[in-house]
């Protein structure tokens, strides 16, 4: 039954490469999600261009993590429209699991697997690629995640002995090994030491030149450092979308001004 559905999905997906918007990697319109009878996300619409940093900012409980989980399809029962690389998310060739390779999700709390650093990097690959990783893949993604220099001599050691900051960078490398078309990061530097924070921000700025990043943070200073497009969310809604310059100097909405001042706001 499953395979049947997938083949038909593939047909549909190849048959109608939906609205062709050039230079846009992700387009979400009218996304809604309720969990346990509560509306968590209401009418979310935004788009990500083919590269660059996008900051998802807002007070805690705004639904930022939930939105990222919807994009990675960890919450599958959202309503609305989601176009990824001009394909409908629901009709992705190869199904949800294949789509998840494209939407590299990095959780707030790093979760490494209890095996070697090298095995962690290749964890999401197919069994054939795990046995014979493509040449240079491990080094390339570890370099992209600014971790290579710290671990190059001990790739076979357990990943559990790394510091939390190193583990977080390992998680970024692990997602990159699947050659995703975008990265979704959920407060990647919350509760990390300043050095790891700095390295991760450097890595993100570099990655943003090749792919779109959607990075959640509630740290206003970090958002200012990273720049790019700011998506300000509160109470399950997008309140304001603006470039970093505009948002931090002349925010349009009252809620945004309140948030910039107090790091919290009342939108309900």
């Amino acid at each position: 039954m499953n395979t049947k559905r997938k083949t038909s999905d593939m047909l549909v997906a190849t048959a109608q490469p939906a609205t062709t918007t050039d230079g846009v990697s992700l387009q979400v319109s009218g996304l809604k999600l309720s969990l346990g009878g509560k509306n968590i996300l209401r009418d979310i619409s935004f788009s990500l261009r083919e590269h660059g940093i996008n900051i998802l900012i807002g007070p805690s409980g705004a639904g930022k993590s939930t939105l990222l989980r919807c994009l990675n399809q960890l919450h599958a029962d959202w309503q609305g429209e989601m176009l990824i690389m001009n394909h409908h998310a629901r009709q992705w060739p190869g199904g949800t699991d294949a789509l998840r390779h494209q939407m590299g999700l990095i959780a707030q709390k790093p979760a490494v697997f209890p095996c070697s650093i090298e095995k962690n990097v290749t964890f999401g690959l197919s069994s054939r690629e795990r046995k014979h990783p493509p040449a240079g893949l491990i080094e390339r993604v570890l370099r992209q995640a600014v971790l290579w220099d710290e671990v190059k001599d001990r790739l076979h050691e357990s990943a559990a002995i790394l510091s939390i900051g190193q583990q977080q960078r390992l998680c970024i490398a692990r997602a990159l090994a699947l050659s995703p078309s975008m990265l979704l990061l959920d407060e990647p530097t919350a509760s990390l030491d300043p050095r790891s924070k700095q390295l991760i921000e450097a890595s993100l700025s570099q990655l943003a030149e090749t792919m779109p990043l959607l990075c959640v943070t509630h740290d206003i200073e970090q958002a200012q450092r990273l720049g790019g497009q700011i998506i300000f969310m509160c109470d399950g809604r997008i309140i304001e979308i603006a470039s970093a310059d505009t948002f931090f100097t002349r925010p349009e909405r009252l809620e945004a001004r309140e948030f910039l001042r107090w790091s919290t706001c009342d939108c309900s």
Binding site: L74, D97, H101, A107, A111, F113, F123
Partner: peptide, 15 residues
């Protein structure tokens, strides 16, 4: 087993 670990595996596209 920590839920984060299971979710990390699922987010990597594992069935």
């Amino acid at each position: 087993i920590p839920l984060e670990r299971t979710e990390a595996a699922r987010a990597l596209g594992m069935r």
